[in-house]
Amino acid sequence: MTAYKAMVEISLHGMSEIIQESVTIATALTHHTVVPSTMRWKQRTYTFLSCGMHYSRFEGDVLLHIFSMITDNACMQIILNTKTLRWTLKEIESV
């Protein structure tokens, strides 16, 4: 691969990776809102520093809450399925 192709590849796909795995989340109630505070995944605990963004959408008749959570070296997209109350780690994007 040429250096230019590698540059295109890194720009397009960055350091992000689709995970799509169930995770355990602890939440905190701050400013009248529930936000994830820590995540347990693959025997490791990750502490979230802040929530970049929270939004919701419907997938069929299921309301999903999507959180972009920030750790000290990554941005993680985690999803709460309000029907099953399961949390899923969808994607990790490292710095």
Partner: peptide, 25 residues
């Protein structure tokens, strides 16, 4: 800007949103 809002690691960096994830996007 919304992508930079969602991921603070992108703030202050040159970011684009493109139609497709390819060089032709």
């Amino acid at each position: 800007t919304i992508e930079q809002q969602a991921n603070p690691n992108l703030r202050g960096k040159p970011v684009v949103v493109a139609a497709y994830a390819s060089g032709n996007g």
